[in-house]
Write a protein that binds this DNA or RNA. Structure first.
Lengths: 139, 139
DNA sequence: CTTCATAACTGTAATCATTACAATTTTGTA
DNA sequence: TACAAAATTGTAATGATTACAGTTATGAAG
């Protein structure tokens, strides 16, 4: 596992330091679209010397190297995702959990953007997830 | 003009105070997806006593009443839009301007979300606008 | 036209995510 | 083993947003 992550990082010109490996591993194992703080709180338990700045720096580096994407579905804090393929996200207004949404391949018809050059697509939805709907929580 | 805005605000159970009318008028006349600060800087020129907190409070109220939407396409500050219809946005990475993107009516095919209840849709793109592409700025 | 309760507005101080930066530690290589 | 480069740390700044308490404006009742 670690070996594979090391290779992937190297491929993207990211030196595979111990912290970087752990952070990337967190992203792909949890698949929970975490905030900086979520990553930090989890990893600091096994790496007591970890600094939150390092998590910021590392995720910023991953962004620049294109191995993670930034998700701004939460107004308060940035979330990150190691799945860089084109897909949407759903954030439950009740429990706050973020889900992946598969997009149909034929899903797109945008008008009047022929002269624009699109580098990033962000597709977000908000509402109630199945579990919270069942519970009827708050609503 | 003012009369129409007053009616619209009243219809949505928003008392049409002087400040609220001016802020709403700014949104629909400029159509520039402004930040709180952009609204404030423009309006404080004619309303010297205006407080930035009032702009925050008012836009928050408009949000709750459903007459504006929040746009989180800019990582630093929230933008607002008085066009509440379903449409996308494009933010130019060079000049920072935000454009409206019309979405084809047949544009949607989402998989596996039948059990989700969607209340909001956010469709953002980032890249280069036509003008900045011509200029070849930075790129 | 005044009174008064309510709502709107103001200004300052707190909050909190993020960034800047200088000092320290780690790493890879010779 | 030594050393230069890169990574990491911790603290201090930044900047958008929110909290809150005091002040002002509003609109209905008399």
């Amino acid at each position: 596992m670690t070996k594979q992550i090391e290779q992937l990082l190297r491929m993207h010109i990211v030196r595979p330091s111990h912290h970087r490996i752990k952070i990337y591993q967190y992203l792909i194992e949890k698949r929970n679209h975490p905030s900086v703080d979520m990553v930090y709180q989890e990893l600091v338990r096994t790496i007591p010397t970890l600094s939150k700045t390092t998590v910021y720096n590392t995720l910023q580096l991953f962004l620049e190297k294109g191995i993670v994407i930034m998700i701004t579905i939460d107004e308060n804090e940035t979330r990150y995702d190691a799945d860089t393929s084109l897909h949407g996200h759903f954030r439950c207004s009740s429990c706050g959990k973020i889900f992946d949404i598969r997009l149909g391949t034929d899903a797109w018809r945008l008008d009047g953007i022929d002269d624009f050059e699109i580098n990033e697509s962000h597709i977000y939805f908000k509402g109630w997830c199945p579990e919270c709907r069942k519970k009827g929580a708050l609503q």
